[in-house]
Amino acid sequence: MSKLTGYILSPVFYFFFALTLCIFHPIQWVCYRFFGYKAHKVSVDILNFFLTYCQVFLLNSVTFKNDFNLPTDRPIIFAANHQSMYDIPSLIWFLRKHSAKFISKIELTKGIPSISINLRLGGGANINRKDNKQAISEIIKLGRRMKENNWSTVIFPEGTRAKDGKVKTFQFGGIATILKAVPNALIVPIAIENSWKIVRFGMFPLTTGHALKWTVLQPIEPGDKTANEITIEVEAEIRKVLEQETGNLG
């Protein structure tokens, strides 16, 4: 049924998703050009609110759970598993008070309404995966901006999306590089559930009727821990949530 209704509802979802991107592209430009970064950020937050709740057109529910009082006066590294492109709008919206930035492929900075302009102006790191020196330099610059502005960043230590929802081995390089620039950053794991199911058949049809969940887990103080130790701990906590969910379904 999920696939069948996807044939009907996917065009509706894509229409409103694309319309939202097109509407907010000039809004972002005007906000940044005439009112500066803060106005631009507000426009991006609102954009991602609408992108997040476009999921209603696929009959998908969206739940964000955070039982922790996370600080807004220090940088945070949010580390999450990665299941689909639909992970990102919700993270931007729900983490908006933490000014969460992303590490993105430099190819995405051109040609995509709203998304490309945000990547160019929003303060994240746009990296060339074929140029390791450039990538590390951009991530370090992001770390410095985090330190100067008390910004946060979201990283996906798996490196690529887990298309079947199964967590891949986390790599510690991203956390290690950012911590060099922001050694006092708090590490906060986030478990993402079920967004992979939307694209299990690719771009079309998208599937419907899923309970999409983002769960903030116990924050980790870096202290004397190595980046590798932190990454292993983050992966273990996220796996625990996803395995528990799988067990409940079973």
Rank of each mutant, 00 (worst) to 15 (best):
S84G: 10
S84P: 06
D87T: 13
D87I: 08
I88R: 06
P89G: 02
P89E: 05
S90M: 11
S90K: 03
L91N: 06
L91P: 01
W93I: 03
F94N: 04
F94A: 02
F94E: 01
F94H: 09
R96T: 03
R96V: 09
K97D: 14
H98F: 12
H98Q: 14
H98S: 03
H98L: 01
S99T: 10
F102R: 00
I103V: 13
K105C: 12
K105T: 11
K105S: 13
I106D: 14
E107G: 13
E107M: 10
L108K: 06
L108S: 10
T109W: 04
K110P: 12
K110A: 12
I112L: 14
P113C: 09
P113W: 05
S114G: 13
I115C: 11
I115D: 01
S116H: 07
N118G: 10
N118D: 06
N118P: 00
L119F: 08
R120M: 11
R120Y: 02
L121Q: 12
L121V: 04
G124A: 13
A125Q: 05
N126A: 10
I127H: 13
I127N: 11
N128I: 00
R129T: 09
R129H: 11
D131K: 12
D131I: 04
N132H: 14
Q134L: 07
I136F: 11
I139C: 05
I139R: 01
I140D: 00
L142F: 04
L142S: 03
L142I: 08
G143A: 02
R144F: 08
R144S: 12
R145Q: 15
R145E: 14
R145P: 01
M146T: 09
K147G: 06
K147N: 12
K147L: 11
E148H: 12
N149V: 10
W151E: 13
W151M: 11
S152L: 07
T153S: 10
T153Y: 00
I155L: 15
F156M: 09
F156W: 09
G159R: 03
G159T: 05
G159F: 01
T160C: 08
T160I: 03
T160M: 07
R161W: 04
R161C: 06
A162P: 00
K163H: 14
D164W: 13
D164I: 03
V167Q: 02
V167N: 01
K168F: 07
T169F: 09
F172M: 12
F172G: 04
G173S: 15
G174F: 01
G174W: 00
I175D: 03
I175T: 12
A176Q: 13
A181K: 05
A181T: 08
A181D: 14
V182P: 10
P183L: 05
P183F: 04
N184G: 05
N184M: 08
L186T: 11
